[in-house]
């Protein structure tokens, strides 16, 4: 298994113009993306096509058109071989309540080809790893939501997969449990060296643990790439002014800055956003503010967050 920081020779998952329709619902509409090593966030609103995409990666469905490969192989054709290298934790509550957590995890490890003795040993290891070592012989139905989510993570990692598919793994968790789960996912991706696809509709979750992201919107990929790459827009300087004498100070400042040769835009009546093309921009802005005697409420340097990328790309088309 390649460590996370080793550049993958081939992409872990690659999709080209993949479409999938469920009767009247177009779940995927020409999705094209590449997922490499490490933790990748699969981000999108509910109904964006995330779970369908996971099903295609698992080889449970055949794309209506387009092609998808996992470790260079078509999962629909080489389903058993591909799935033997995958671990999957579903979104929904899917664990038999009357069976002990250890038995469930061992059973799934056996299904993934591990001999019974090894499966028994690794089920214990996996449950210890997710913090359920002392609870592993309790029936799943007696566990809390947070514990059941951990059991799902344990059953996905017990057979030591190369790629882990986690579908909304923080569903139903309170903030503290959610933080713990995200830390676990990061641990699995970084310390245990598994590639992880984290499907989520929550931006901050993906930002917190992912090294790259694929953003889905109504079945289309609106952005994909490394987090650093996606956020690598030129930094900006945000100037927020106080309203004085009921005027709209942003317009006047904007005119002054443009006159000085800066690239700037108004963001409402009191906010001006200036592109930080060179360090000299700071001086020009300072002088303009001083000359106009503006009342400054906030002066902030910022770079685009994933949310900016998401909102911008969702509105304007594909970014990559």
């Amino acid at each position: 298994m390649p460590p996370v920081d080793t550049p993958a020779v081939e992409p872990v998952v690659s999709a080209t113009e993949v479409t999938k329709r469920w009767s009247t619902t177009q779940a995927l509409a020409g999705a094209t993306f590449t997922i490499g090593a490490g933790v990748t966030g699969l981000l999108g609103a509910n109904g964006a096509g995330k779970t369908t995409l996971l099903g295609l990666i698992l080889g449970l469905h055949r794309p209506d058109s387009g092609a998808i490969t996992v470790f260079g192989r078509d999962p629909w054709v080489a389903g058993a071989e591909v799935r033997a290298r995958l671990g999957y934790a579903p979104e929904h509550e899917a664990l038999p309540p009357d069976v002990a957590a250890h038995d469930v995890v061992r059973h799934l490890a056996e299904l993934h080809g591990l001999p019974r003795r090894e499966a028994t040993s690794r089920a214990s290891d996996a449950l210890w790893e997710v913090g359920l070592g002392e609870e592993r012989f309790r029936p799943v139905g007696t566990m809390s939501t947070g514990q059941r989510q951990r059991v799902k993570l344990a059953l996905a990692i017990a057979h030591d997969p190369e790629l882990l598919l986690l579908d909304e793994p923080t569903n139903g968790l309170d903030p503290s449990q959610r933080e713990d789960m995200l830390a676990l996912i990061e641990h699995v991706g970084v310390d245990l060296g598994m590639h992880v696809i984290l499907s989520s509709h929550l931006l901050e979750e993906v930002e917190r643990v992912s090294q790259s992201v694929v953003i889905l919107e109504a079945g289309r990929v609106v952005a994909d790439g490394g987090m650093a790459e996606l956020s690598r827009t030129d930094p900006e300087l945000v100037v927020e002014l106080d309203r004085v004498d009921a005027t709209e100070p942003a317009a006047a400042l904007l005119a002054a800055l443009r006159l000085a040769g800066l690239t700037a835009s108004a963001d409402g009546p009191r906010r001006v956003v200036v592109a930080l093309e060179t360090p000299a921009v700071y001086d020009v802005v300072r002088d303009a503010l001083a000359d106009g005697a503006y009342a400054v409420r906030k002066l902030e340097r910022r770079t685009a967050s994933l949310e900016d990328v998401y909102l911008a790309s969702a509105g304007s088309g594909r970014t990559s």
Binding site: M1, A80, A84, H107, E110, L111, H112, G113, L114, P115, R116, E118, R122, D125, A126, W128, E129, I157, H159, D160, L192, G193
Partner: peptide
Amino acid sequence: TGYRPYHGTRLGVSHSVWALARH
């Protein structure tokens, strides 16, 4: 020793079928 990579035997689909049948 905690969680560690698995380098042991991985059996085929027939093993999976048998494991599910027994379960």
